[in-house]
């Protein structure tokens, strides 16, 4: 490694017990970006962070590209500036090695995944009916004093369904973790030690996009939340989604027709209060305010933020500030993102 100008060690990762929690009280610098493929802004963002002393001039960044599965570690996925060195944490390959070395754990994991898939099908079936009812109530005309409480109750039911679903997800995962204790197994600990080693002397983390379920499973398998320390984070697309409190899947224009946004998973909770919606213009029916309004009201008070190419949101000293970012309000109107207390 060539000699680099470095700031004093200040934010090194600190190993912690497997907690899944990463409360940082808003102190950590987090940057959420729009998708990088068509309009890469990662390099410029790193340069800007170096300029504001968040990163040292010869920064060494750990990348998480597990969401890209077999392409994990491909430098094209994380195009950094010339003065930055990257090391990929290799979570996807690491999980594959764990599955090979520890068939019992792999079988337990597959079984838990099967249960989660079934639970998800049941949730989506219930959600479809509940969303259809709420939408129909919205179109119903009559005495608003009668109808409005019914609409509000329909919405409450959906919010309760989302909450309950995520509790059931946690319950199924809890049963798996209680039985197989993945974080205490040699196979996982050996990989986690390697990840810790790769995190040594890094100045920040970069979470790329990809398959969000693959990503979050790997993050959880190695309890990456417990290794983040106070390092600054740059994330986009699936990476940004996985770091929030909830992972919400959405697409209003898939070839099989628009579905309902889905409370899919509990995120790492590195930040709260924002619901990142990557590729928003491509994936969302932004020209349908009623539909957008339903999305916003369903997940309030979390703010629905549109992460389109070129977007950048920074959490600075506990507040989110943005360039080019937009948000959706409860009426479904898309407007420039306003500063938000983290």
């Amino acid at each position: 490694m060539t000699a680099k100008a470095r700031t004093p060690a200040r934010s090194r990762p600190r190993p912690s017990p497997a907690s899944g929690s990463n409360q940082d009280a808003g102190a950590r610098r987090i940057v959420l970006l729009g998708p990088q493929r068509d309009r890469p802004t990662l390099a410029d963002t790193i340069i800007a962070l170096k300029g504001s002393d968040v990163l040292p001039s010869g920064a060494r960044l750990a990348t998480v590209t597990a969401g890209w599965q077999d392409r994990e570690g491909d430098p094209e996925l994380t195009p950094v500036d010339a003065g930055t060195e990257v090391v990929d944490l290799g979570l996807y390959a690491g999980a594959n090695r764990v599955a090979e070395a520890d068939p019992d754990l792999a079988a337990g994991h597959h079984d838990a995944q099967r249960r989660l898939r079934e639970l998800r099908r049941a949730y989506n079936l219930r959600l479809r009916g509940a969303m259809s009812t709420w939408t129909s109530l919205g179109a119903m005309t009559g005495d608003e004093r009668v109808l409005e409480p019914e609409r509000a109750d329909a919405l409450s039911s959906i919010r309760a369904l989302d909450t309950r679903h995520l509790a059931r997800v946690a319950e199924i995962r809890g049963v798996y973790e209680e039985r197989f204790r993945p974080h205490e197994r040699d196979s996982v600990q050996a990989e986690r030690a390697g990840i810790e080693q790769r995190l040594e002397d890094t100045d920040g983390l970069v979470f790329a996009g990809g398959h969000v379920a693959t990503l979050i499973n790997r993050l959880r398998m190695f309890d990456l939340a417990g290794l983040l320390g106070e390092l600054p984070i740059i994330a986009w697309s699936a990476g940004a989604m996985a770091l929030g409190a909830r992972v919400v899947l959405f697409h209003d224009r898939p070839p099989w027709g628009p579905g309902n946004a889905e409370a899919f998973e509990i995120g790492l909770g590195v930040f709260d209060g924002l619901l990142p919606l990557p590729h928003a213009t491509a994936r969302l029916a932004l020209d349908e305010p009623e539909r957008m309004g339903r999305l916003s009201r369903r997940f309030r008070p979390t703010v629905c933020v549109l992460l389109d190419p070129g977007t950048r949101l920074d959490r600075v000293e506990g507040r989110w500030v943005a360039e080019e970012a937009r948000q959706v309000d409860q009426r479904g109107t898309v407007s420039p993102f306003g500063a938000l207390a983290a």
Binding site: P35, G209, G210, V212, S237, L249, P254, W256, G257
Partner: peptide, 18 residues
């Protein structure tokens, strides 16, 4: 085929955010 196959077997499009 696109409408039929993708409805019966939805792909990871729903899960992938590049």
């Amino acid at each position: 085929l696109r409408a039929g196959l993708s409805w019966l077997f939805p792909g990871p499009l729903w899960m992938v955010y590049e």
